[in-house]
Amino acid sequence: MNLFKTLQNIRRTIHQNPELSNKEFKTADLVEKTLKEQGIKTYRLCKTGVIGILEGTKKTNKKTKVIALRADLDALPIKEKNNHSYKSKNPGVMHACGHDGNTTMLLGAAMILAKQKEEFAGKIQFTFQLDEETAGGSKGMIKEGVLSANKVDCIIGAHVSPWTKSGKVALKYGAMMAGVDKFVIEIKGLLGHGAYPHLSKDPIVATSEFIMSLQTIPSRIVNPVEPVVVTVGKVEGGQQYNIIADKVTVVGTVRTFSEKTRELIKKEMIKRLQGICKSYSMTYTFDYQVLNNPLINTDSVVDLCYESAKQVYGPKNIEFLKNPSMAGEDFAEYLHEVKGAFIYVGTSSNEKTSYPWHHEKFDLDETALPKGAEILANTAKLFLNK
């Protein structure tokens, strides 16, 4: 079998047929079919999540362990602007984050490990997760027993990276990605004629003041050496140019690395809302949602990934990330339950494969896929045999 050609075909099939979160039915079918062809037992979680189980046959007197390897299946509501032969066939849906590559690498690891069962003792769980993009998939799968059913001891996730050169792998000790929260606020005023503002209560003015006040939370309330982001992504209100609105909706996100900071920001947001709305004689509603926790890698598992990467990539092709990212990743929820690590597989080789995640021209260097598969397979064997 030519592993590169096999993985390239799989990746292009998935890329041509992207599916949104919780609708990954065809992708799940392809994954399940591919695993079964390798003699790997499968079952479903949350309808479109696929679990494959492979047991090693190596003899041992020690207690065996279980390692999970994870990839994500869903695409994004983005219209693809690439012109290659394998571009998306689904209008307005695209694998713009590289989950097609993540899934392909994990299928490649399954192909490698299925032929090496005699080289390890213990169990490998191939975890193909639905719904990463809306930050609900990992929680749903945890609730349905993705970690508890097979008593997973450790979990590894791999993601393609357009910011890492093809042929390299990037690792990070400790905090790697921020916790992701979402807030939805509605400021309620009094509808009125634009020519008679004194007879109404203008929520647009109050909202403007509130949005500007948010900027002082990270700059004046939170310790300046602590990474924090407070972003307003959507403001909606009003009917037309000569009508004073009755309400304005504000939607945004908060990114932090600690529960203490998260609670501080939430408290300060409410304080500002109460003060501003009181001064304008208005009311408000405030909905604050914790979407996922910070992604904090286990140092000992990063050590394991480094050992594996030296064997697969060579020490010169390993990068250590210095700073955490303010982006989020729901793999973090697994790390709240068991030890593990998240790694980046470099897929950037030229301008066409260096567009950032969620870009309409996102693509990847497919020659990186076999090595991505190999590091997942090798790391699993190292963990089970140690």
Rank of each mutant, 00 (worst) to 15 (best):
Ile156Leu: 14
Lys165Met: 13
Cys277Ala: 14
Leu291Tyr: 08
Arg255Asn: 09
Pro315Gln: 10
Val301Gly: 06
Lys182Val: 08
Ser258His: 02
Ala71Asp: 05
Pro227Val: 07
Cys97Lys: 07
His358Asp: 15
Asp74Thr: 05
Lys201Ala: 04
His99Gly: 10
Lys381Ile: 07
Ser281Pro: 00
Trp357Ala: 13
Ser308Val: 00
Leu382Gln: 13
Glu32Tyr: 02
Tyr334Cys: 04
Lys271Val: 09
Tyr288Asp: 02
Ala170Phe: 04
Cys97Thr: 11
Tyr344Phe: 15
Gly136Trp: 02
Ala380Phe: 03
Val232Asn: 06
Gln239Arg: 12
Leu54Asn: 11
Ile156Trp: 01
Gly252Asp: 09
Asn22Ser: 14
Val225Tyr: 15
Val345Ser: 13
His193Trp: 08
Ala206Phe: 01
Gln311Pro: 02
Arg12Ala: 11
Gln289Ile: 13
His336Gly: 15
Trp357Cys: 11
Ile187Trp: 06
Asp299Met: 02
Glu37Asp: 14
Phe120Ile: 00
Asp29Lys: 15
Leu264Asn: 07
Ser219His: 05
Gly275Tyr: 12
Gly275Thr: 15
Glu226Lys: 11
Asn350Leu: 06
Val338Cys: 10
Thr48Pro: 03
Tyr241Cys: 14
Val205Met: 06
Ala373Phe: 02
Pro77Glu: 07
Pro77Gln: 04
Pro370Gly: 01
Gly328His: 02
Lys63Asn: 14
Ala175Gln: 10
Asn17His: 15
Lys26Ser: 14
Gly92Leu: 09
Asn385Lys: 03
Gly122Asp: 01
Val302Leu: 01
Ala96Trp: 03
Glu144Asn: 03
Gln129Asp: 05
Ala373Met: 04
Lys58Val: 01
Val50Glu: 04
Gly49Thr: 07
Val254Phe: 11
Ala195Asn: 13
Thr60Asp: 01
His198Phe: 11
Asp153Gln: 07
Gln289Asn: 09
Gly372Lys: 04
Ile156Ala: 03
Leu54Tyr: 08
Lys381Glu: 04
Leu291Gly: 09
Leu130Thr: 13
Ala110Ser: 15
Thr207Ile: 02
Thr249Asp: 06
Ile67Leu: 11
Asn297Met: 11
Lys23Gln: 14
Lys143Cys: 08
His198Arg: 06
Gly174Lys: 02
Pro203Gly: 01
Ala377Glu: 09
Asn242His: 08
Leu190Tyr: 12
Ala327Val: 12
Ala109Arg: 06
His84Ser: 08
Tyr43Trp: 07
Asp299Pro: 02
Ser325Glu: 13
Thr13Leu: 11
Ile67Pro: 05
Lys36Glu: 15
Pro162Gln: 07
Val222Met: 04
Pro294Cys: 11
Met105Ser: 14
Val235Ser: 10
Ile343Leu: 13
Ser279Ala: 15
Leu335Thr: 09
Ala245Glu: 05
Ser213Leu: 05
Gly346Tyr: 01
Asn242Tyr: 09
Ile270Met: 13
Gly194Ala: 10
Lys79Pro: 08
Gly194Ser: 08
Lys5Ile: 14
Asp181Pro: 05
Phe257Thr: 03
Ser208Ala: 14
Tyr241Trp: 15
Lys41Pro: 03
Glu307Gly: 00
Ile276Met: 10
Met94Ile: 05
Val222Arg: 02
Arg255Glu: 06
Thr256Ala: 04
Ser258Gln: 02
Arg11Glu: 10
Leu364Ser: 09
Trp163Pro: 11
